[in-house]
Amino acid sequence: MIQILRTTETEEYRILRGTAADYAARVLAPVAEELDAPTGTPFLESMNKASELGVLRAFVAEESGGGGLDDYAFCVALEEMAVESAGAATALLIHNAALLPAIAASGAPELEAVMGAAFPMSLAYPGQVSLAGGKVSGQVPMAFNAPAASMFTVLARSTEGIAVAMVEPGSEGVEITPNEHQMGLRAARCGSLHLTAVEPLAIIQADNEMVESLERLLHLGFAAISAGIARKAFTTAHAYASERYQGGDIIVHHQALRLMMAEMVSGIEMSRAMIKSACEEGGLAPALACRIEATDRALRSATDGVQVHGGYGYMEDYGMERLMRDASWCQIYPRPNQESLLTLLDLVEG
């Protein structure tokens, strides 16, 4: 495999990257196709083994049994996992995002069950949900991890502003409809959620800052996942192009293909640099900008990755078409890229 990028990462991150890459290759790669099954609950056994990386409770302090990771470390782990299964990485991202409000409100005794919830938790956001009289009602069209969720983190509007309701899937009034037609990121199976006067397990008072930190994590996470997709597209395409003979030469020597692959490299470089800088900078705007650019570039890389493979790329057996489907889905959550661009300008304007 060729080295894509020199890195100035400190040893701590380098070690994590290595461990995560090893985990992805050892555990996720063999089941990547099963995780992408068109219907049903995905094969999530392998995800539980991710606890050895400290990513199942990435943002819980180490002394409380969590991973104690910072944003960048989490992005490093997601990127490496996404190389083999963007869907599994998404399931992990959503799980950790769903835990954020409970972590922020740490110490509350009623949240003990939440902090101990099994993987995966689901994030019911964005949607049209309201909290009144201690009960939540409304609907969320697309919640990742919904059909398999151990717990829902539901963002709701209440008279006092934003509230986070922790809802158990078995509670009365909870209706989950799995999305059986999901095109991408299938390991993080989506479902629509209908809540009718559901009594939550706990309610966490939230503010805009909480929503912002949640969104920031989602943006950084999808940027990292996209970088992983683009890397997979590049390395697989380059390896194939170095072997496939066509037009009197191996195709890696054809300029048309070299250009495509060079653009993949530049896209990966850019995404990684932006992720690193957005993690260091803090704030929503850099994370959002990074997410928009990284996901757009990943779709292009994945589409070109299929093209390099020709007919083989179009067939499920080679795993290339999955990258295209996954990359397309990275562009839209929690909101589509173009809409996010307008938000970005709003943020910059202050």
């Binding site: 069209p141 697309m142 999305n179 397309s328 839209i332 959550y333 909101r335 589509p336 890229n337 173009q338």
Partner: peptide, 11 residues
């Protein structure tokens, strides 16, 4: 691909 990106998370 543009249509999908614009339509977003829509069921």
């Amino acid at each position: 691909s543009k249509a999908l990106e614009l339509m977003g998370a829509d069921d």
